[in-house]
């Protein structure tokens, strides 16, 4: 067991075990740092950058930092909140996030974080770039309109050591892809795990949309910062 250390969030003393993931340690101390790519208890990805804070005076993605004794973390500063909000806005305009028709609406982390930030309209223009929806033999769907390229599926959905999902291309051409041979071997439980790992509505299993009535969905009943494990 690592030593318990004291660190500071916006000047307030907090405690955690040395080396604890900063996003998780902050949550344990009652401070919500928004994130999309961080999957609690797993290795940090540092891809969405939405957990942007200042650590000892320098901008940093909180999920990629471990707590150190005496560490000073700024979370609440207006310019940091604005930068985090801008990142969410960049994700919204980059693809076509049409919430009213999304199976994941009401339990989507992107949407819930945007609510938390009181986002009513992005400062960036919408792009309306066409993206495809892929149906893999009725077993799995990938809606690229909604993918935020966080890399969670790539990292946390595996068969043995092999990646089931991978990222192809680069830049704004980057797309998530699935290995067909491995997909064919996946059980219903594994598929459900993949759907669960996706923080948005990009990876879906057929027949599971809109199964919870509006008003009773995950983020209808809780705000995202209130759900301490960041997931279900």
């Amino acid at each position: 067991m690592a030593d318990e250390v004291t660190f500071f969030i916006d000047g307030r003393p907090c405690t955690a075990a040395a080396g604890d993931n900063l996003v998780e340690a902050a949550a344990d101390n009652g401070v919500y740092i928004p994130t999309l790519c961080h999957y609690k208890g797993h290795k940090p990805l540092g891809t969405c950058r939405v957990c942007m804070v200042r650590v000892d005076g320098r901008e940093a993605a909180a999920c990629t930092f471990g707590v150190r004794d005496g560490m000073r973390v700024d979370v609440d500063a207006p310019e940091l909140a604005d930068a985090r909000k801008a990142l969410i806005e960049l994700l919204f305009v980059e693809r076509n996030h049409f919430c009213p028709a999304c199976e994941k609406s009401g339990r989507c982390d992107l949407q819930a974080v945007a609510y938390h930030m009181h986002l009513t309209v992005p400062r960036f223009p919408y792009r309306y770039v066409p993206f495809t929806v892929e149906n893999f033999a009725g077993k799995l769907l990938i809606d690229h309109n909604r993918c935020i390229l966080c890399g969670r599926c790539e990292e946390f959905v595996r068969r043995g050591d092999s990646k089931v999902f991978a990222m192809k291309q680069r830049s704004s051409e980057a797309r998530i892809t699935v290995d067909l041979a491995l997909l064919a071997e996946m059980s219903a439980n594994e598929i459900a795990h993949a759907v669960h790992v996706c923080p948005v509505g990009a990876i879906l299993a057929p027949g599971q949309g809109f199964d919870t009535p509006i008003g009773r969905r995950k983020y209808d009943t809780h705000r995202i910062g209130e759900i301490t494990d960041g997931r279900d």
Partner: peptide, 11 residues
């Protein structure tokens, strides 16, 4: 040339 992995650079 963006590798595409992080939001600010890619988008």
């Amino acid at each position: 040339e963006s590798c595409g992995i992080c939001t600010p650079c890619r988008s």
